[in-house]
Write a protein that binds this DNA or RNA. Structure first.
Lengths: 109, 109
DNA sequence: TCTATTAATCGTAATATTGCAATATAATTA
DNA sequence: TAATTATATTGCAATATTACGATTAATAGA
């Protein structure tokens, strides 16, 4: 198999899992942190700063873009990446709602 | 390759990515939601309610336990699972710190 | 136009994940 | 002790992910 059975879960569950998957790699965490600190960033910068090949960085950027977490605008020869403002807010809400559902310790454990 | 280069990232980045990976599957999201709503839950309940085989549920529970998000205590023949209170707080802090680093829209995008 | 420069895509190898049947383990009960 | 119940583990097939060299595409400047 190796194929997630998305059809048996709610859209909400699938969406949250997809967002989490986008954050589930240290390179993508590092890329997002870099963008947040510098406000924007260019693929070439990341290649220099993280120790990964250009193709690998580009692939991670694509995943972040597909997940809607970042957006890129062509800036001459390079591409300027930044956080997608609306979707970042939605991400915060989505995760917040999920985490806040916890009502404190149970009696049994 | 197919092997994440964890050595080039900070512990913080690797830890956050690991936690996100634990949440990066709809079944595990569903399991956690179920536990949060019911306060506790037993493997057999999940097998009945989600549409996955017992072996699969048990595997997902193991991953959540390994990530420290849940804990299980033996309750007779069955095992009572619940959220790990301290680690859940840490998770909230960790994610919160990460998400709050975003300082609003950049000028370029 | 030719040539850098930058980023995306393709192809591929290594490894990880998902899901399940079958089996094993552990605890209760007859 | 034997049967029952509940969960964990094993083994395996299908698929996904990670990483990178090589190549391609697109823009800027000489």
């Amino acid at each position: 198999m190796g194929l997630t059975k998305t059809e048996i879960f709610t859209d909400e569950q699938n969406q949250l899992a997809t967002l989490m998957k986008a954050l589930a790699h240290p390179a993508r965490v590092a890329i997002l942190q870099r963008i947040m600190v510098a406000n924007t960033c260019i693929c070439g910068d990341l290649v220099g700063e993280l120790g990964l090949a250009q193709a690998t960085i580009s692939q991670h950027l694509k995943e972040l873009k597909t997940a809607g977490l970042i957006q890129g605008t062509i800036e001459g020869v390079s591409v300027c990446y930044c956080i997608h403002p609306q979707n970042w807010k939605l991400l915060e809400q989505h995760i917040g709602t999920f985490l806040k559902a916890y009502k404190g310790p149970a009696t049994c454990c």
